[in-house]
Computed example of a mutant assay.
Amino acid sequence: MLKANGIHKSYGSLKVLKGVDLEISTSEIVSIVGSSGAGKSTLLHILGTLDRPDLGSLEMDGKKLLELKGEEMARFRNERIGFIFQFHNLLPEFTAQENIMIPGLIRKTSPDKLKMKSGELAELLGISHRLDHKPSTLSGGEQQRVAVARALINSPAVVFADEPSGNLDTHNAKGLHELFFTLRKELGQAFVIVTHNEELATMADRKVEMQDGVIL
């Protein structure tokens, strides 16, 4: 489904990725682990089209992603890719439901459809009773579930998560980890997760270890 070949990336004289090859299958959960500075987040951002490699190729379902530019790339990312970040990145002035709906509004999906789908996702994620609350009134675990729902609102093929449980306590982290597998079963998305959490890493279908800009 997603295929990266020969990915190189440098920032100035610092070589961060040194020829990475990786394939992600449909509905597969893959964890990416390694010490700080190994290149995990850089690889995740390139796989998710948030950054571009210096060399290499990136394809999803046969489409050459690095040939897409501007609005075409933004539209593809919005429709086919979801993101979950460590710090949630929720907009404080909007309710939980409004935050969830934002990628769908960008896609120009009707608000009525988005309200229905955001409600269904919130029910699945156990936050349906918090939809009208602003992020500041939500717990860390609730905020992260809102971020997960937002990542799923456009039914992407793959969701990229960068340290998704990094700011959660043990109980909420465990719940989030189990949630990914429930979502895969219910909705069929692939998940690619950068994590330092060994429990989450070993739960994945496949664990990819990085060191010094390469996959071991």
Score class of each variant (00 low, 15 high):
M1V: 15
L2H: 11
L2F: 12
G6K: 14
I7F: 13
K9T: 06
K9A: 07
Y11L: 14
G12D: 11
G12Q: 12
G12L: 13
V16P: 07
L22R: 08
I24R: 05
S31A: 15
G37A: 13
A38Y: 07
K40F: 10
H45S: 07
G48M: 05
G56T: 06
L58K: 10
L58E: 07
M60S: 14
K63Y: 04
K64S: 12
E79M: 13
I84V: 15
H88N: 10
H88Y: 15
L91P: 01
E98C: 04
M101P: 01
L105T: 11
T109V: 13
L114F: 05
M116D: 12
M116Y: 03
K117G: 00
S118P: 05
G119E: 09
E120M: 14
E120G: 06
L121R: 08
E123V: 02
G126L: 11
I127V: 14
D132F: 08
K134V: 10
P135F: 13
G140R: 12
Q144M: 03
Q144G: 01
A147S: 09
V148L: 08
R150P: 02
F160Y: 13
A161D: 03
D162E: 04
P164R: 08
N167R: 05
L168I: 06
N172F: 02
N172Y: 03
K174Q: 11
L176W: 02
H177F: 03
L179R: 03
F180M: 06
T182L: 15
R184E: 07
L187M: 11
A190E: 03
V194L: 08
V194A: 08
A201Q: 12
T202M: 15
T202K: 15
A204G: 10
A204F: 04
R206I: 11
E209T: 02
M210L: 06
Q211F: 01
Q211G: 01
G213L: 06
